[in-house]
Design a protein around this nucleic acid. Sequence first.
DNA 1: GCCTCGAATTTGACGATGTCAAGACTGGTT
DNA 2: AACCAGTCTTGACATCGTCAAATTCGAGGC
Lengths: 210, 210
Amino acid sequence: MTGVRIPNSATNLESLLLSTAEGLIADGGLSALSLRELGREAGVSRTAPYHYFADKAALVSKVGASSFARLADRIDAALVTAGDLETRCLAGLRAYVGFALDEPHLFRLMFSDVLIRHTLMHDATMATAVAFRNDSALRAFRGFAEAISAAQAAHELAAEDPMLIVQTLWAYAHGVAELALGDKITLVGSVDDLLESGLKALLDRYRPAD
Amino acid sequence: MTGVRIPNSATNLESLLLSTAEGLIADGGLSALSLRELGREAGVSRTAPYHYFADKAALVSKVGASSFARLADRIDAALVTAGDLETRCLAGLRAYVGFALDEPHLFRLMFSDVLIRHTLMHDATMATAVAFRNDSALRAFRGFAEAISAAQAAHELAAEDPMLIVQTLWAYAHGVAELALGDKITLVGSVDDLLESGLKALLDRYRPAD
DNA sequence: GCCTCGAATTTGACGATGTCAAGACTGGTT
DNA sequence: AACCAGTCTTGACATCGTCAAATTCGAGGC
């Protein structure tokens, strides 16, 4: 029996495989993804993925990129909330940490060395590696940069490279996410309090003397 | 030929295996560690490690704990430098990020989900999991807590739960480390500047009104 | 000195995995 | 009808984690 291809339907096998792989990693972590299991789950043969992804690393890399894109969407959605700079930034950072808590395995994957290494080696030049970062990761923070630029134009924030401020906020949010992921019990306060007080402190530093 | 056991000498095979495993992970990442390769490298047979470590996960877990201990040592050493609170904290955070940059693979391992999951599942109770965190990870920041408590006693810092401040600093340093690891080029300023300005901002928040 | 016992280590074996090479099916073109 | 390129499957191989059985080895009693 050759087996009927089920809901493969119109769309590519590629996207089916990609989303299946994402699902496998989402519950179970990276170690839960095997190409054979992926084939099984998707109703195709074990080596079918090789027609779309050169490598397991390539597949994982694409899953990572897709996760970054989803993170970016979530942040963008959060950033459009009404309010002043601090309110909006807090919403954005909450989205960041929220994604990490909702999808711990994907979040971990995004910053695992498998991803970085593959991106660096396979995309050949360092320039494209940076481009990857810009497209996938930094895009998640473009909204922040715009919000900050706007605040600077309104003289609510000192004139500084907006990206520097973005990096500062990003670093802080990332650390909070990691701490929260590690084991929530040890945290003294709530994740949200930690996020809010830190954000306030970091933003205050860039307030104009006025 | 049974082969002469080389420099196993007096010390346990266990510590030899542990340090060899650490070395394998340090260059090459977690995926570069296989029990068979470990045996080869250590001059013993493939299943020899099973007498000391129940699992590959158990072995990796111990490597992680050992890495946390080394991180803690490095931070402690940095914290004893002379100077005011900010100077000392900056030295400590630099040590944190420095470790991450020097040992990216070990650093990643320490926060990978394999480590967390194994600790949670194998050490049976949640209590011991927390104990692990306290012993290995939080120990790295005990020095910070002490420095902060001292500053509070001297009224240089507002009375707050010192651990909350420690968490704030930790989160920030961790995020900076991650950003720096990802790909150093994109960073707007130097890692050190980022660290310093962020620390200043976060500490200022807890300065007494005075 | 030999023997025994228990721990430390090895060898054998099994299922699972990533990956490559070769084959088979498919639809559309000439 | 013959061909063809794209898509997928089957077969095969080395490697891996792990368990069970076998082996080596060193110390203590006779």
